[in-house]
Amino acid sequence: MLSKLMGHSEEIAALILFGIGFTNLLLNRNMMKKIIGFSMMDSAIYLFLASYGYIDGRVAPIIEDASAPLEVSAYVNPLPAGLVLTGIVVSVSVTAIMLALTLRLYKRYHTLDIDAIAILAREADPE
């Protein structure tokens, strides 16, 4: 059991992190905490994905000498890293939007508490 857990240590850490981030995004009432939770959730998925590209004893997929004969089994799988690179930029864009929304909501309602914002928004504008 323990060896199995150790063998999956990266995934387990990633999935716990996913759980924490998900919970923060769903249930934390503070908008800033929600945003941080979202960032954590996304980086957890990237950790999960990239850990599968890794293969023990291989090096990063950057060819140093183009003239040397190519040894395919010397490099880790490059595709997950490419996907994660795409994902990281997506998550920073979304974070920026959520922060801007938070700023606007705070300017209008003077609170970061999403429940309070809900009450205020409904009272000020019933439709």
């Binding site: 999956h8 293969i55 023990d56």
Partner: peptide, 13 residues
């Protein structure tokens, strides 16, 4: 999630 992830192929192998 973890209980199912343990069934996945092992990391680094």
């Amino acid at each position: 999630l973890i209980s199912t992830a343990l069934d996945l192929p092992q990391f680094g192998a």
